[in-house]
């Protein structure tokens, strides 16, 4: 089976790659917080955020096209959530349409809010892609753990990372088995097959879960998760966090000032 990588470019060796995962986690969260809390009208600030992320992406030597492609995945979700805002927000009317029985109006302020949500989501996802593309997933988990995220949640994430490809492989095998016997048939029948496959997959995953738990117990697992702590906070981390933090704080202050 084809082996996929969630953290494809994480083996690189740039300044960003070498940072401690905790530094990256905290600065990323801080960045997202600042982006989200920026008032709508400050388009200059958003331009600045974009320049900031773009610079970091270039420093990290992760292919920009790859980042761009992955970032587009967020658009449908945002659109789904925010699509109605331009129609319901009150204000100066940008356009009015008659669709069958309804009178639909779009307002300028509504459009502005919509675009703003899109921009914020996109900037946030860019920074998150940068984080996951430059950090190995196992290091990311270590970082979360050292930042005192509850161990159970870290374990769930680590199981997800370990088994998602096992599941994907299983789905691919099931699809191949289905296709090699599928001699046409109506849409409805195909849909039923898909339903059966999902059910089978669920049962298999459930049973695998039981076997994994047995394997954990066989090695002395008693419900308490233990790990080796290995802090490696360096000067570089402090410098990076400080610089980025200062830039962001300056932007926030500038926003409040003007």
């Amino acid at each position: 089976m084809k082996h996929s990588f969630l953290d494809q470019y994480s083996q690189g060796n740039s300044l960003i790659h070498r940072l401690d995962p905790r530094t990256k986690l905290i600065t990323t969260l801080f960045f997202i917080l600042v982006v989200v809390l920026t008032p709508i009208s400050r388009w200059q600030a958003f331009a600045l955020y974009f320049v900031l992320v773009a610079t970091l992406i270039i420093i990290s030597r992760v292919p920009p096209l790859y980042v761009l492609r992955r970032s587009l995945a967020i658009i449908p979700f945002v659109v789904l959530i925010a699509i109605f805002i331009p129609f319901f927000k009150e204000g100066e009317v940008a356009g009015s349409y008659n669709i069958w029985m309804w009178q639909v109006t779009v307002t300028y302020s509504g459009l502005q809010v919509f675009l703003n949500i899109l921009a914020k989501a996109w900037l946030s996802i860019l920074s998150l892609i940068l984080l996951t593309a430059t950090t190995r997933f196992s290091h990311l988990l270590k970082g979360l753990e050292q930042l005192r995220l509850p161990r159970v949640m870290v374990m769930i994430l680590s199981f997800m990372y370990r088994y998602i490809f096992v599941l994907v492989d299983e789905v691919m095998r099931m699809k191949q088995a289905r296709d090699s016997r599928n001699l046409g048939g109506g849409r409805l029948r195909q849909l039923r097959t898909v339903g059966n496959m999902i059910g089978t997959l669920f049962i298999r995953s459930y049973e695998r879960g039981e076997r994994v738990y047995a394997a954990m117990m066989a090695r002395g697992f008693d419900g308490q998760a233990r790990t080796l702590e290995k802090p490696s906070f360096s000067q570089r981390d402090a410098l990076f966090a400080l610089t980025l933090g200062l830039v962001l704080i300056l932007v926030v202050v500038a926003n409040l000032w003007y």
Binding site: Y161, R208, V212
Partner: peptide
Amino acid sequence: DDQLFSPT
């Protein structure tokens, strides 16, 4: 795949 459940 049941026995090895960790990221590394």
